[in-house]
């Protein structure tokens, strides 16, 4: 089943990519191929891939492999992943406004206290704050990496 969804996805992607390639404006000077030729080749490659996947689906059906039960015992974990992605997304959106130190500390506090339970609130919080402040100074002052200052004065 998954493979058929992927197959459909490839075909849709190929169609969109061919269309997007045709939208590239070209000036016919010098370069005999222009910027469209290579993307067209990739579009063809995508169609070949679709054919290969189809051949595999047919081959596997002939071999009568037992349908792979995809989600083995991980039914509950999808919710955790969605939660982690959402929290991380909020962290990234607020990264520049809040600044590195505040956003990282807040993110680590939330994530660590959620995933490292067993009543280790103090260790989690200390790690989060020390890491956020320490890494900020190491990377901006010693290594010259550009990180956002945000609302804090330093």
């Amino acid at each position: 089943m998954t493979d058929r969804i992927i197959l459909a996805g490839i075909l849709v992607l190929a169609a969109v990519y061919f269309w997007a390639t045709s939208q590239i404006p070209t000036l016919e000077i010098g370069d005999p191929l222009g910027p469209k030729a290579f993307p067209r080749l990739l579009g063809v490659g995508l169609l070949i891939t679709a054919a290969m996947l189809l051949a595999e689906i047919i081959r596997d059906r002939k071999a009568q492999k037992p349908a792979v039960a995809a989600e083995t015992a991980s039914g509950g974990s999808t919710g955790v992943i969605v939660l982690a992605v959402v929290v991380t997304a909020i962290f990234f959106v607020s990264f520049e406004t809040l600044g590195y130190v505040l956003s990282v500390a807040a993110y680590l506090l939330i994530m660590m206290n959620y995933f490292n339970k067993r009543g280790r609130w103090l260790i989690n919080s200390l790690t989060a704050v020390i890491y956020a402040v320490g890494s900020y100074f190491i990377f901006t002052k010693a290594l010259g990496v550009n990180l956002p200052q945000g609302v804090l004065p330093f």
Binding site: F92, V104, Y107, L108, M111, F115, N116, I123, T127
Partner: peptide
């Protein structure tokens, strides 16, 4: 190192690399 501390830290380190 508890994985619950390690994994969030890896994301925090990734942020420095990607934003930098």
């Amino acid at each position: 190192i508890p994985p619950g501390i390690l994994y969030p830290l890896i994301i925090a380190i990734s942020v420095i690399g990607a934003y930098g």
